[in-house]
Computed example of a mutant assay.
Amino acid sequence: MEMRELTVVAGSFVGFQLLFSVASPLLSSAISPTYGLLPPTKHTEWNSRLVSTVHALIVGLFCLYILCFDEAVNSNPVWGDPSMVKLNVAITCGYLLYDLLLLACNWSTMGDRFFVCHHLAALYAYGYVLTRGVLPYFANFRLISELSTPFVNQRWFFEALKYPRSNRMVVVNGVAMTVVFFLVRIAVMPSYWASVFSTFGTEDFERLGSGAQVAWITSCVALDILNTIWMFKITRGCYKVLAGSKAQKGQEQAEASTRSDKKKHANNHAD
C-alpha cells in the first residue's frame, strides 16, 4: 500500500474515533433530548450508528458522483484511473477498521457475526484496490450500497427511543428502508454480475492475477449472500410493521365507531 493510502486510512480511522467521541454525543443530545436518558450501552451503539450514517452519506454520494462523471473509471472498469475511487475506498477502510474495533470492545452488547463477516470481506477486496489500484469501477459500484445504511440506522434509533411500530415515521422509514435496500443491494446484482462476467477471458482480467481474481469474486459472493439474508429479514420486519399498523388503525376505527354509537345511544335515551 502506498504511503498516501496508508495516510488516508490512518487519518480516516482517527477521524471516525474523534467524531465518535466528541461530535456524536453533542449532536445526538441536540437532536434528541431523550438521548441522555438512554443507558451507557445504548449510548455507545447510538454514537456508532450516527458515525455510520455520516460515513454512508459521504461515501454513497461520492460513489454516485464517480459513477456519473469519472469517465476514466467507467471506460475501463478493471484498470481505469483509480485516484478518486481509492480515496473513497480508503475512507471506507478507515471506518470499517474503526467499527471492527468498536464491535470487539463491546461484543456483549453490539456483537454481530454478520457485520464482522461483511467488514472482513470488504476489507479483503478493498485491500487490492488500495495496493494495486485495480477494479476501481467495481469497487465504486459496491460502495453505492451504503446509501441504504442511514435508513437501517434510523430504524434502530426509533427502537432505542421506544417509538411504537405503528408510529407514522417508523412506518415510513421502514418502507423507505426496504425499498432503498432492495434497489442498491439486490436489484443491482444482475447488472453488476453481467459487468463482472463480461471481463472474463479478457486481457485486462488475466492481468489481475489469480490473487486479485479470487479476492474479487469470493468477496462479492459473500457480500451478496449477506445482503440477501438481510433483505429477507428487512422484508419480514417491514411486513410485520405494516400489518401491525393496519391492525391498529382498524382497532382505532372500531373504537371510534363504538364511541360514536354510545354517544348516539345516550342522546336518544336523553330525548
Rank of each mutant, 00 (worst) to 15 (best):
E2F: 15
V9M: 11
A10C: 09
A10F: 15
S12G: 15
S12Y: 13
G15S: 12
F16I: 15
V22L: 11
S24E: 10
L26I: 14
I31R: 00
I31F: 14
G36H: 02
P40M: 05
P40A: 01
H43F: 06
T44N: 06
T44H: 05
E45Q: 04
V51T: 08
S52L: 10
T53P: 00
T53V: 13
A56M: 02
A56K: 10
A56D: 00
V59M: 00
L61K: 02
C63T: 11
L64I: 11
I66E: 08
D70I: 13
D70G: 09
E71M: 04
N74V: 15
S75F: 10
P77L: 06
V78K: 03
W79V: 03
D81P: 00
M84S: 14
V85L: 07
L87V: 12
N88F: 03
V89F: 06
L96G: 06
D99L: 15
L100I: 15
S108T: 06
S108H: 08
T109L: 04
T109R: 05
T109N: 07
G111S: 13
G111V: 13
R113I: 12
F114T: 15
V116G: 00
A121K: 00
Y124R: 11
A125K: 06
A125D: 03
Y126A: 01
G127P: 11
V129I: 11
G133D: 03
V134S: 01
P136W: 15
P136H: 10
F138E: 00
R142G: 00
L143M: 12
I144K: 07
L147Q: 07
L147A: 08
T149G: 01
T149F: 11
P150M: 05
F151T: 12
Q154D: 02
F157N: 09
F158T: 08
A160L: 14
L161H: 10
L161A: 09
K162E: 15
P164S: 11
R168Y: 15
V170C: 03
V170L: 08
V170N: 01
V171G: 01
V180G: 03
F181T: 05
F182W: 13
A187F: 11
S191D: 12
Y192A: 15
V196S: 06
G201H: 05
E206Q: 04
E206M: 04
G209D: 14
G209F: 04
G209L: 07
S210L: 07
G211E: 13
Q213N: 03
V214A: 05
A215Q: 02
V221G: 01
A222C: 10
A222E: 05
L223G: 02
I225M: 04
I225Y: 00
I234L: 08
R236G: 01
R236N: 08
Y239P: 00
Y239V: 10
Y239I: 13
V241K: 02
A243V: 09
Q251D: 08
Q251L: 09
T258C: 07
R259E: 08
K263R: 12
K263L: 14
K264I: 09
H269A: 14
D271L: 13
